[in-house]
Design a protein around this nucleic acid. Structure first.
Lengths: 233, 233
DNA sequence: CGTAAGGTTGAATTTGCTCAATCTCGGTGG
DNA sequence: CCACCGAGATTGAGCAAATTCAACCTTACG
C-alpha cells in the first residue's frame, strides 16, 4: 500500500473512518507554511486528505480581516465540499509544513453522482447548509453588528426567492428581535439599536412582520453579501 | 401526488432540488411557534422537510444564552444530519407556525448506508466537519473570548487524540497568535491578553509550539466543552 | 379597559479594538 | 563569539462596540 511507506501517516490508520480514504491516495504533495492548496474560486483538479501538519480554510472581507472557517488536522479531507460543488468557496492554505494525499477527482465525485435522485437531493441539502454555516462563521467572526444583520436579511431574501416566497423587495419575517439577536450573536437591545441604524440609512423597513429591503444593492454592499455561496450545483 | 393538494408547498416545486424530497413525503405535521420538532439528544424517528413557516436549529449555553445555529425556510431539510448521525446534536424548534413533510427514516438513511466504503467515509467527513462548524457558530455567537480560546484548545486535543497525534495533556501547536485570532474572531492583541488569563489560571501553557493543557477538566468546564458533537458514527 | 409580550430608551459598565511602542528570541552574517 | 535583524509577542493608553440593567412605551388582544 502506498501510504504505508510515507510521511508519518501511519498514526492515521488508527482512525477507522480515514482508512478507505487513505487507500484511495495515489500521490503525495507537500506545502510550506502560507502556501495555498487552492485559491477561492478555483475548480479543484484533485482531492486532498491532510496527512501531516495544520491546514486551514479561510475567507477574507474587504477590510482585510480574515476568518479561518475551518482548521484541518491530519486525517481531514481538505477540499471535499469544493470537489463536490465544483469550485472552492474558500481558500485553503497550509499553516505549517504539510503533506497531503492526492485522490483522483473521479473517485470522490463519481460515486455520489451516480446515486438515485433522492440521495443526490439530500447531499445537495447537506452541501447547501454547510455553505450557509461557513458564511455564518465568517459573519460572526468578522462582520460588524450592522453587517451581520444586513447579511442575514440579504441571505433570507435570496433563499426565500429561490422557493418563490419573497418578492423582489422583501418578504414576510414574523420574528421577534430576540430571535434576530439569537441568530446574529448579539443582545436584543443591540439588535434594536442596529435596526434603527439600518432604518436610519433607509436600507430596510420592518413593519408588522414584513421586511422590506428599500435599497438592496446598498444593503448587499454594506453586508459584503455575495450570493454565490448559496449556489450549490 | 401527495404534496400537490397540501399546504401551499406548490411554490416549492419551483426549486428543482427539492422535488425528489417532496415526492418522498408520506404525511404532514404542523407545529405552533415555540414547539419542538426534536429535542437535543433525541434520536429522530422520521425525517422532516419544512413546507411552510420558519424553523430553527439551536443550542444553548449554561448561562442561558441561546444561539440559533441555522434558520430554516421552506424547502429545507430540518433534521438531515440528525437522521444520518442517529441523534440530534441541537434542538429544532418552530419559530412561526410551521408545516413539515414527514419522510420515513429508511428512505433517507438507507441509500447512504448501502454505499461503498469510500463514499461512506466521505459522507462521514462531511457530517464531521459540519458538526464542527455548528459548534463554531455557537462559540463565535455566544462564548466569551476566554471560552472561545479554551474551547478551541479542547477541540484540537480531542481531534488530534483521535488520530494519535496528541498526548493526554497537550499537543504540538506551532501557530502564531495572529492565526489563533483568525480562528476565534478576535484581534491578535486580544488573543495575547486572553492567553495570559488562561495561563494565569494555570489552565494551559504554550511554549515553543507546544500547547500543554494543565487542567483539562477545568478547561473543559470553562469552555463548556462537550466532545459528543465530534462523535459521528 | 387591562394585561402581557415585545419594542424602545438611557446610563453605567464591560469587553474588545486600535495604534504605537517596546521586548524577546531564534536565526544570520561578520 | 557577537552584533544585528525580523517576526512574533507583549504592553499601555485611549477609544469604540456591545452588554447590562432597569425603566418605560406600544400594540395586539381578550
Amino acid at each position: 500500500m502506498f501510504v504505508g511507506q510515507s510521511s508519518g501517516s501511519s498514526a492515521l490508520l488508527a482512525r477507522q473512518a480515514a482508512r478507505p480514504v487513505l487507500r484511495a491516495v495515489v500521490r503525495e504533495r507537500a506545502l510550506d507554511p502560507d502556501q495555498n492548496l487552492i485559491l477561492q474560486g478555483e475548480a479543484p483538479q484533485v482531492a486532498h486528505i491532510l496527512l501531516s501538519g495544520y491546514t486551514c480554510r479561510h475567507r477574507t472581507l474587504m477590510n482585510g480581516r480574515r476568518q479561518i472557517t475551518a482548521i484541518l488536522v491530519p486525517g481531514d479531507m481538505c477540499d471535499l465540499e469544493a470537489v463536490l460543488r465544483g469550485w472552492a468557496d474558500s481558500g485553503i492554505t497550509a499553516l505549517t509544513r504539510c503533506v497531503f494525499g492526492e485522490i483522483p477527482l473521479e473517485q470522490v465525485a463519481d460515486p455520489l453522482r451516480q446515486e438515485p435522485e433522492l440521495a443526490r437531493a439530500l447531499l445537495h441539502q447537506l452541501l447547501y447548509q454547510k455553505a450557509i454555516d461557513s458564511e455564518r462563521v465568517l459573519s460572526l467572526g468578522q462582520r460588524t453588528a450592522l453587517q451581520r444583520l444586513a447579511h442575514l436579511f440579504c441571505e433570507l431574501q435570496e433563499r426565500l426567492q429561490a422557493v418563490g416566497l419573497a418578492e423582489e423587495d422583501g418578504y414576510s419575517l414574523p420574528l421577534t428581535q430576540m430571535e434576530l439577536s439569537e441568530l446574529t450573536g448579539m443582545t436584543n437591545v443591540h439588535v434594536n439599536r442596529t435596526l434603527q441604524a439600518l432604518r436610519g440609512q433607509n436600507l430596510v423597513r420592518w413593519h408588522r412582520g414584513r421586511l422590506s429591503l428599500l435599497d438592496r444593492p446598498a444593503l448587499e454592499r454594506l453586508a459584503e453579501f455575495d450570493p454565490t455561496y448559496l449556489r450549490v450545483p
